[in-house]
């Protein structure tokens, strides 16, 4: 039950986690009006940063989406740092220094994640190479078989190519 489970991770996982540790009493709702910055440009920057920061206690939400208390504290922290003149990257680094790379929903490109980021290109490339050789193999087979078609094969071939073949041409 995929998405069901996943969304539960927000609420239930927290509940299950609470058996192990306690989470601070939580006011509900993600970003709240009283935490927002007066300057819309600054607030927009804060939103952009917090959308890429993982809420640690809910595990699969960004702090922008989460109503957990910790997420709220981190959102406020981000806004404080911005007010103090930090760049977006500096704010991110500040969080990473305290909570580790784990808080970044967008994994940074480095040696350990090269395979991850390269994967789509590698997969498409390998696939294209495979398809290319497969087609070439097909072509060679035709070339090899070309001059020595049996009568039966000739007939079948022509029936396949023939424009009268309504099914294939439709």
């Amino acid at each position: 039950m995929p998405s069901l489970m996943s969304r539960l991770s927000s609420a239930i996982l927290c509940a299950g986690f609470a058996l192990l540790i306690a989470l601070a009493p939580s006011p509900s709702g993600a970003v709240l009006p009283d935490e927002m910055l007066a300057d819309p440009a600054m607030e927009a920057r804060a939103r952009v940063i917090s959308k890429d920061i993982r809420c640690l206690v809910c595990q699969n939400q960004s702090i922008d989406d989460s109503d957990a208390d910790l997420a709220r504290d981190l959102r406020i922290l981000i806004r404080e740092r911005l007010n103090e003149g930090d760049t977006n990257d500096q704010v991110q680094d500040y969080l990473v220094a305290r909570y580790g790379e784990y808080v970044l929903l967008n994994p940074p490109m480095r040696a350990g994640t090269l395979l991850l980021w390269g994967a789509p290109a590698i997969l498409v490339l390998l696939g294209s190479i495979a398809v290319f050789f497969w087609f070439r193999g097909l072509g060679r087979k035709t070339a090899a078989a070309g001059p020595t078609l049996s009568a039966e094969e000739e007939a079948r071939l022509s029936s396949l190519i023939s424009p009268r073949n309504g099914k294939d041409q439709s």
Partner: peptide
């Protein structure tokens, strides 16, 4: 206010 605990990297209680 729960500000210092952020510097300590706290995310659950107790730690």
């Amino acid at each position: 206010q729960g500000k210092a605990v952020l510097d300590w990297g706290v995310y659950g209680y107790p730690e």
